[in-house]
């Protein structure tokens, strides 16, 4: 919003700066490039190589020498892709991701708006709680949620059972993977809301007062003010948060793994879990790498739209 006033100026300025300073620009990105290439370049290269190689002479052969492990082209990919289990898992993961990202962002936005409305003492308390939630490792929070939803000893069943007409005693949340994944969703969303809410809250506080005032004077309802002023203002931030959430939730592992005590049933498999049980966990590193590459391809596919947006954020329009 504030940028509109200056954007004309920028259009003139940018190219000049660009020409004059691009040597400096390369110098500036050099350390980052060294890290990207030096630290992730080779492992990424290795993952791609592994996905193209056959693993036929013992589990460590791949790592000893590339010479003894023949390349098999895309055969690993056709094998994974022709397994119907993979597609079931992928579909489940996509649904899980959409639900979790949607819920996290919606709830995060709600909490952020609320933080803007409440008195200072209430804000301090809620923010403190959110910070603590954020700081707890997901392995620990998953264990806690597992207890809360335990069939015989869980607080949730105990509380629901108090409600007249509801009989939840001994209800097993994990017998049906849909219910079980709902519990997983609860942990994931619970853990994701703090970052989103605190970030969005910070964003909202920066919306210039005059813009909101103007909207109100024009007779905009609170909902219209939200959709026409707040949302567009927060858009770049939302895109970053959404991208991050998609990457996390698509690759979700800890919350499912520990919720099922390291032995997730077929109905709980998402691609992260699938990659582990088919690949890394059973020392089939080539299969694991293949699924890993497919995960990246899927993420890129899902996010084509957002990638365009990401390129734009921070650019002079």
């Amino acid at each position: 919003m504030t940028a509109t006033g200056t954007s004309t100026g920028r259009r003139v300025v940018s190219p000049r700066i660009g020409r004059r300073g691009s040597g400096l620009a390369y110098l500036l990105i050099l350390p980052a490039v060294v890290v990207l290439v030096g630290v992730t370049g080779w492992p990424l290269y290795k993952i791609i190589m592994l996905s193209l190689q056959r693993q036929d002479s013992g589990k460590f052969a791949l790592f000893h020498s590339a010479g003894t492990t023949p390349f098999v082209g895309l055969r690993n990919f056709t094998r994974v892709l022709s397994d119907s289990a993979f597609w079931t898992v992928l579909e489940r993961t996509l649904v899980f991701t959409v639900l979790n990202v949607g819920l996290s962002l919606a709830l995060g936005m709600g909490v952020a708006l609320l933080l803007n409305r409440v008195s200072k003492w209430a804000r301090v308390i809620l923010v403190a709680v959110l910070l603590f939630v954020w700081a707890v490792p997901s392995t620990v929070s998953t264990q806690i949620f597992y207890w809360l939803f335990s069939n015989q000893y869980g607080v949730v069943n105990w509380l629901l059972d108090r409600v007249p007409g509801v009989h939840m005693r001994g209800h097993d949340w994990f017998a049906d993977p849909h219910q079980g994944l709902a519990v997983v969703t609860a942990v994931v969303v619970w853990g994701a809301v703090p970052l989103i809410a605190i970030s969005l809250h910070a964003g909202i506080t920066q919306i210039p007062r005059d813009v909101l005032e103007a909207a109100r004077v024009d007779g905009a309802s609170p909902w219209q003010a939200f959709t026409r002023v707040t949302l567009p203002f927060l858009r770049p931030l939302l895109i970053i948060l959404m991208t991050l959430s998609v990457i996390w939730d698509f690759g979700v592992f800890n919350q499912i793994w520990f919720m099922r005590n390291g032995h997730p049933e077929p109905g709980y498999q998402t691609v992260g879990i699938y990659m582990y049980s088919e690949g890394v966990g059973s020392s089939h590193y080539n299969t694991g790498a293949t699924i890993g590459v497919l995960m990246m391809v899927c993420l890129l596919g899902v996010m084509v739209f957002y990638i365009r947006q990401l390129f734009r954020i921070g650019d002079a329009e």
Binding site: S22, Y26, L30, V33, V34, G38, G41, W42, Y45, F63
Partner: peptide, 25 residues
């Protein structure tokens, strides 16, 4: 002007090659 980026690329490629060469245990 592009010297830095080329250097970086060279370093990177060398790094990859060195590492690959070493990877035969």
């Amino acid at each position: 002007m592009k010297r830095t980026v080329v250097t970086a690329a060279v370093i990177a490629v060398t790094a990859v090659m060195t590492v690959s060469a070493c990877s035969s245990g």
